[in-house]
């Protein structure tokens, strides 16, 4: 079987769905930690619930990624640049795991229950500890900024492929007209 020219439909759905989810999570997080307004409580609850969904989603996504064949980058791209592209993708995966996990762990370390849409409460798997909370709370903020930086570079690169090089790399994720 030859290598496909686009990502599988399931991979593309996960990609665009999670792009939307992660942007919502980032903006919600950045806004809510400052806000003294009554909606803070509601947004915090949604942030935690959707954050757990983001964790489940990235696990599903990784499984899809490992089980499907991904399109190869065009030969016009130098080998070094290909390696950088691949490394940046794995860094994105690392950040997508680190965000929800640090959120979950910091709530554990704070002794706070993580309720998902009032349906169920996740078990605590970290001890309650002030320094541990301090660590995961800062990781949550630092990785958020790293994720933002990675995503901006990622978008710039994708648009460069799509608008300037026009080598089909952008279309491998947007899908092609048949």
């Amino acid at each position: 079987m030859s290598q496909p020219t686009t990502y599988s439909l399931s991979a593309r759905i996960m990609h665009w769905g999670m792009a939307f989810l992660l942007f919502s999570m980032l903006f919600a997080g950045l806004a809510m930690v400052q806000s003294l307004q009554p909606w803070h409580l509601t947004l915090l609850g949604l942030h935690k619930s959707f954050g757990v969904i983001a964790l489940i989603a990235v696990i599903v996504r990784l499984v899809i990624r490992l089980r499907t064949t991904t399109p190869a980058l065009p030969d016009s791209i130098p080998a070094l640049q290909k390696r950088i592209a691949h490394a940046s993708h794995w860094l994105l995966y690392a950040a997508m795991f680190a965000m929800p996990l640090s959120g979950y762990f910091m709530q554990n370390a704070a002794g706070r229950p993580v309720a998902v849409f009032d349906l169920f409460t996740l078990p605590a798997i970290m001890p309650v500890s002030l320094p541990l909370y301090g660590f995961f709370r800062e990781v949550h903020a630092l990785v958020a900024w790293a994720l933002i930086a990675l995503v901006l570079v990622h978008i710039a690169a994708a648009l460069h492929h799509g608008l300037v090089k026009r080598d089909g790399v952008l279309q491998s994720m947007t899908g092609r007209k048949k």
Partner: peptide, 16 residues
């Protein structure tokens, strides 16, 4: 909630 969390964050970071 948000004010307590900010105070909590600062003192936790200092302990870490």
């Amino acid at each position: 909630s948000a004010a307590y969390a900010e105070s909590y964050r600062r003192r936790a970071r200092e302990h870490f």
